[in-house]
């Protein structure tokens, strides 16, 4: 990389360049980095540190007491567990949706493609109410599921349904461009070399998709962990059973317990951040292993 750049500069710049600034190909690194830092600080860092500072008001002993209360632990387990399941479902079915949308042409394809974005655009409360109406015991779908012994609305299963709904676009939209870029000739080459369809899927297509799939997973998961509006209608909100962590935060606020609310928020933040770091590391590993771009 360095050699061609140097050659390029020597050829085009007739006056000798300032010695230290010779390496930047794109201008304005200092400016954009400064802007990035200010922007991120204003938008992310300062509000989040406010959360941390507010929870400090509790003192360590009390903080520990709040976040290890059985009801809080149960809600955190539910929030992260349901989000994980929902993100996994989205990875599998989102991949299929993206595949169909990229690889095949069929009537109303544009319409179907636009439909994928609906969970983005819909106010989450509307989504929650619609899903609850659908899956309630007297709803269009709930009515048929009930005789089979499947209850969706007002159970943890309902939470997974809501979180799957809101997470779908994240996986589809991250996969689509990668699938479009995928060279079909590589698959054909694999076929001519005697690879079965399954083999070329696992060994040729999947390695190129892993990084995007992980990104989609991470986005869908992160979105699901913080979701409140749609879940609250379908969850039933029973303590220890179907109560999500964001609801407990709202509950604490309702009692003017700002410190307790932020304590739960801090735990969610730390857990989410840890998981995101882990997913990023996994992605890095997938990239380096498969040499994808």
């Amino acid at each position: 990389m360095a050699a061609p750049a140097a050659a390029f500069e020597v050829k085009t710049l007739s006056p000798p360049p300032p010695p230290r600034r010779a390496r930047g190909v794109l201008p304005g690194f200092g400016l954009t980095l400064g802007y990035t830092m200010v922007y991120l600080s204003l938008l992310v860092l300062i509000p989040l540190s406010a959360v941390f500072i507010r929870s400090l008001g509790l003192g360590w002993g009390h903080f520990y007491e709040v976040v290890t209360a059985p009801r809080v632990v149960a809600s955190l387990r539910l929030s992260f567990g349901a989000s994980l399941i929902a993100a996994l479902i989205n990875v599998i079915f989102g991949l299929i949706v993206a595949w169909v949308l990229v690889r095949y042409t069929f009537p109303f394809k544009r319409l179907v493609d636009a439909m994928v974005d609906l969970p983005f655009a819909l106010p989450t409360a509307v989504a929650g109410i619609a899903l609850t109406a659908l899956y309630a015991p007297n709803g269009w779908l709930g009515k048929w599921l009930l005789p089979l012994g499947i209850k969706v609305a007002f159970t943890p299963l309902g939470i997974v349904v809501a979180l799957t709904f809101i997470g779908l676009p994240f996986v589809v939209r991250t996969l689509q461009p990668v699938l479009e870029d995928l060279d079909r000739e590589v698959e054909q080459a694999a076929a001519t070399l005697g690879a079965s369809a399954a083999q070329s899927f696992v060994r040729v297509i999947m390695p190129a998709l892993w990084p995007a799939l992980l990104t989609g997973f991470a986005l869908a998961f992160a979105r699901a962990v913080g979701e409140y509006g749609s879940v609250i209608f379908i969850a039933g909100n029973m303590p220890m059973k179907s109560e999500i962590a964001p609801l407990l935060i709202v509950t604490k606020l309702e009692q003017y317990d700002y410190a307790g609310a932020t304590a739960i928020a801090v735990v969610m933040l730390v857990l989410s951040f840890g998981l995101m770091l882990g997913i990023n590391a996994l992605q890095h590993w997938a990239l380096s292993r498969h040499g994808g771009r």
């Binding site: 609850t132 109406a133 039933g236 909100n237």
Partner: peptide, 20 residues
Amino acid sequence: VPVLDSGARGSTVTFVERGI
């Protein structure tokens, strides 16, 4: 109590619209 909604209007909807 099978469902604990977060507000009064939510409970009314559960009882009236969802038939629970």
